[in-house]
Amino acid sequence: MEHVLNHSAELLILLFLIITFLMSFIDKVTDWKGNISFLKSHFSETFVVPLLPITLVLIVILEALTTLFCSLGIFEILAEKNTNYAQVGSIISCVILLLFLLGQRITKDFDGARNITIYFIVSVFAVFLFQN
């Protein structure tokens, strides 16, 4: 129990990232057409519309990897007192959020970009916590 308490910040951040990216992954997989439709509308006045399907596939893969590595990170912290998986999951989450930020900036959705920044701060903090 003491080990869990000593690593409570790390474990809570990993749970936050798992919930965030697992729910996003599930939404994209279960409502693929709805997501494509929304994105086509959101990016309608930009050059990225033809790239949306491949970009969404990339995002789904990265979200799955983030969820996997953060989940393995929890077990690794609890069992082996190591943070390698957690660090990889945190870094991938930062990459995803940077892609989201880029998309919001391309569409000039500055409120959306500001909202992504909140998630990015948590992810960067996780990367900082898991540095060896």
Score class of each variant (00 low, 15 high):
1 M>S: 10
3 H>I: 07
3 H>M: 07
4 V>S: 08
6 N>F: 04
6 N>P: 00
7 H>M: 06
9 A>D: 13
11 L>S: 05
14 L>A: 14
17 L>Q: 12
18 I>D: 02
19 I>V: 13
19 I>F: 12
20 T>Y: 10
21 F>Q: 02
21 F>V: 00
22 L>S: 12
22 L>A: 14
26 I>N: 04
27 D>G: 13
27 D>A: 07
30 T>C: 04
33 K>R: 12
35 N>Q: 12
37 S>P: 00
37 S>I: 00
40 K>F: 05
40 K>N: 15
44 S>A: 15
45 E>P: 03
45 E>N: 14
49 V>Q: 10
51 L>C: 03
52 L>N: 08
53 P>C: 09
58 L>Q: 09
58 L>V: 10
58 L>M: 12
60 V>A: 14
64 A>H: 02
65 L>S: 06
67 T>S: 04
69 F>E: 06
69 F>N: 09
71 S>F: 13
73 G>R: 10
75 F>D: 03
76 E>F: 05
78 L>P: 00
79 A>Y: 09
80 E>F: 14
82 N>E: 15
84 N>I: 10
85 Y>W: 11
85 Y>L: 01
90 S>M: 04
91 I>G: 01
93 S>Q: 07
93 S>L: 02
94 C>K: 04
95 V>S: 04
97 L>S: 08
98 L>A: 14
100 F>C: 10
101 L>A: 13
102 L>W: 12
102 L>S: 13
105 R>P: 00
108 K>I: 06
108 K>E: 15
109 D>H: 09
113 A>F: 08
115 N>T: 11
118 I>A: 12
119 Y>K: 10
119 Y>P: 00
121 I>V: 15
122 V>I: 15
122 V>A: 15
124 V>S: 07
127 V>Q: 10
127 V>H: 08
129 L>W: 06
132 N>K: 15
